[in-house]
Design a binder for these strands. Structure first.
Length: 281
DNA sequence: CACCATGTTCCTTG
DNA sequence: CCAAGGAACATGGT
């Protein structure tokens, strides 16, 4: 479930579980899931390294690694793609079919599982360079957003998913933010008024912040049900995830604000959901 | 069988 | 130069 809020929640859960732990084994089960990094190089650098910190940038996870002995530290990037998951589990659990990278941590292991193989791990931080500001950070101001929309003729919904404008918004939260801001997804980016840009700026922050808050206060499948304490999975499963979304995947359902039927359209080959009454063109 | 899916990147076309 | 569209990556659910 990877847009900014889901990645943030994952980072918060993994952080204490990885903090200070040393990597004893490195298994790359699918080399194609390492981008710009040769599997041998990946294994060489990670073996013996220690997890020292974990942060998030856009939809990327940034692992701060300490080298073994006096080797210099380095950063490792993770991206979940469409279907990636990361978790720490005991060795006794059967390994997931699509486990792509497995890092031995002693009595437990870190698993990067990715059924659709769109996710990546890499030691090359280059992909961070093209990211725009963090939507919840101080650099993301109304002016900055206005500047980013600038002279673009792209539909605002499509523009919002450009990670260079602001980092971390994907297909779901683009629709959600626009609905909250009462801006039509089809409106040309440059046509947004100052007022609309202001509302959108606020809506983006609220939608993302609420999603993080919602997710982080709910149990995230910290499952002891298999009788083996400590099995940790990241995933919705509870169903609460969709329930808080106002328009996404709600075609035909009444808009919570005005009762009008939610519409679905396709933009840049992705589904967009909106209320044709609240969000007039 | 067809179609759909939370993402990114590359390529072609206009 | 930009924008738009499509394909690719690969699997699984409905």
């Amino acid at each position: 479930m990877p847009e900014l809020p889901e990645v943030e929640i994952l980072a918060r859960h993994l952080r204490p579980r990885l903090q200070g732990r040393r990597i004893r084994e490195v298994e790359v089960r699918r080399p194609g899931s390492l981008r710009e990094t040769d599997p041998r190089e990946f294994r060489r650098r990670l073996a013996g390294a220690r997890f020292e910190g974990l942060t998030r940038r856009g939809k990327y996870l940034l692992f701060e690694m300490g080298g073994p002995k006096k080797a210099p530290g380095f950063r490792m990037l993770g991206h979940l793609g469409m279907s990636g998951r990361m978790y720490v589990e005991p060795w006794s659990v059967p390994l997931a079919k699509h486990a792509v990278v497995v890092l031995g941590l002693g009595r437990e292991r870190f698993v990067f599982e990715d059924t659709r193989y769109f996710g990546r791990m890499t030691l090359d931080p280059a992909s961070l360079d093209s990211l725009g500001p963090e939507p919840l950070g101080p650099e993301f101001t109304v002016d900055r957003l206005g500047l980013g929309l600038g002279n673009s003729r792209q539909a605002i919904k499509v523009r919002l998913m450009d990670q260079g404008l602001v980092a971390g918004i994907g297909n779901i939260y683009a629709s959600e933010a626009l609905h909250r801001a009462r801006v039509s997804p089809r409106k040309m980016a440059r046509r947004l008024t100052r007022t609309e840009t202001g509302r959108l700026h606020t809506a983006i922050r609220e939608v993302l912040a609420e999603a993080i808050e919602c997710g982080s206060t709910l149990p995230l499948d910290y499952s002891g049900k298999a009788g083996g304490g400590g099995l940790f999975y990241f995933g919705s499963g509870e169903g609460n995830y969709e329930e808080r979304l106002r328009v996404y995947d709600r075609e035909g359902e009444p808009c919570e604000r005005c009762g009008t039927s939610i519409r679905k359209i396709v933009q840049a080959a992705r589904s967009t959901f909106f209320c044709p009454a609240c969000q007039r063109a």
